[in-house]
Amino acid sequence: MSGKKNTGGRLYTYLIMLFLYAPILVLIVFSFNGINSRTVWQGFTLKWYGELFADRGILSSFYTTISVSVLSAAIATVAGTLTSVGLFNMRRRWRAPLLYINNIPLINADIITGVAMCLLFVSLGSVLKFRLGFGTLLIAHITFNIPYVVLSVMPKLRQLDENLVDAAQDLGCTWFRAFRRVIIPEILPGVVNGAMIAFTMSIDDFVISYFTAGSGVMTLSMKVFSMTRKRVSPKINALSSLMFAAVLLMLLAINIREIRQERVAKNKARPLSGIPARSGRGAK
């Protein structure tokens, strides 16, 4: 009976995956299409890839997306980590409301965050004489990225044994040295995770960028959106296929590394078998 149930479950999982991947498959297949059509297939070609690398508009929007994502993720990671340490040391009475405000961009619909910042930048801009552009776009991205970093670093700080820091300082470390040598290594997984989430959120964002970038700057999403109002060129399909390949390779690399690290960790842990493993998983 359980075998039968498993087949059903497997089939269902495949169906969900088919649903999730069908559109991506369509995008990729039609990036090799001989004619400019998104439904009729007419022979194999690579010309859209060639044309993609000659299209200034698409390329510049791609660079904008990459630079705003990398910059905002990097800044948010540093700022979010330092903020988390600060918040963690605050009294609960102060920490709780601040964390609540920190969560607002996560809870609010993107369009609310977008129009709210749009209002702010437009009103500030009319006073301080600046226009919406890359600067406002970057500020918006940093603002919605920091909460993700804080949210992923905080739990790691809670797990941190505070005695370690005290010990380091008792042994003559300055606070900064203790921070670098003791706190950072302990919370690193949370920091890396936060950076990854921030980067993903940035690169995938359309709505907030749309409201905060003004008319001069375009991210890739904005470019695609403006094209869907007229006609989307298969060059966009070519670009999305390349991005898909890049993401796939990156995720594969991360996973292989993780599996390797786990193996190393397991081998290292063996001599210390007197210490009971904290998680029940993995140990059969």
Partner: peptide
């Protein structure tokens, strides 16, 4: 590890870019 002040810049950031924009909507 008492470094509360590390959170201060972000408190101002939140006031400027999270609270103020929503107040503007209102």
């Amino acid at each position: 590890m008492k470094r509360r002040s590390l959170a201060v810049p972000y408190v101002f950031w939140m006031a400027g870019f999270i609270v103020a924009p929503i107040a503007l909507i209102v």
